[in-house]
Amino acid sequence: MKRTALLILLTITAISKVSAQGHGPLYGLQTPTLAKGGFDFNAAAMSLATEDDQSFMLRYIWSYGVTEDLQINITTPTMVNRLSEAPRTRGNNNMPANGDIEASVWYRFFSNAFGVGKRFESTAILSVSTPTEETRGGINLSNSIHGAISTGYASRTWYAWVGGGYQYYFEKDNDQLGDLPYASLVVGYRPNIFMGDYPKPDWRVFLESLAEFPGASMNEGQISPVDQRGKKVMIGPSFLGLYGAWGISFGALFPVYQNVVQDPQERYRLSMNISYWL
């Protein structure tokens, strides 16, 4: 209860300071980039529950549109409760659910706006991150690089994005976190009752799914005896509400398949995000 109150308090504090970005899905990869010269701020509260424990984290992301197709971001965490045995995941592809500070570049390399409210576009993401903790799951942590690509369709009614990414942690003191290939698929829908014109509130619902394949970590120079890539598929709903410069999104992911011999089993992921476009 005390932990929850602290989480809410910290979120409210964060929100009162600024605002954010959260134009698309909460967990999956997306494609939209900011306007040229646009700036936005996101504050997110995130939680990841395993069979043993539950993490709580606040995360902030500042984004700036260098051009209408090129966006730079930096995201920093405030860890409220870390997992001693953390599953290998990014958690949320746009804002990692682990304790990393991450800087990223989004490049929308393809865009075809072919109708009123309609467009196809593709975006590539390259990021570098540095951990805020010494070890994760007993493995010494180092910096990492992450790359992803996503493509999708947006309209006034339907949305769909598909993408995939890869994160690689460097070796540190004979330890190395396993790599993480992943894929995401998101479908979104805006019901008719929310088709009111700007500046009326704008809501949509997403069905999000993530597939993650964490590689085995190296501990003291030794690859885990179970040298087997884990497999995990998570699915869940998220909701996005937009009004003027503000956005709020919240949602959850639940495992529908897990085969992670090395990591703890996940139970769910929760996330809430407040966005403000400056």
Partner: peptide
């Protein structure tokens, strides 16, 4: 002015502000 590709409230907000 006809604008293609604008799908959401922040899109309209950003364009209006610009």
């Amino acid at each position: 002015q006809e604008v293609f590709g604008m799908d959401c409230a922040p899109c309209a907000y950003g364009l209006e502000r610009g």
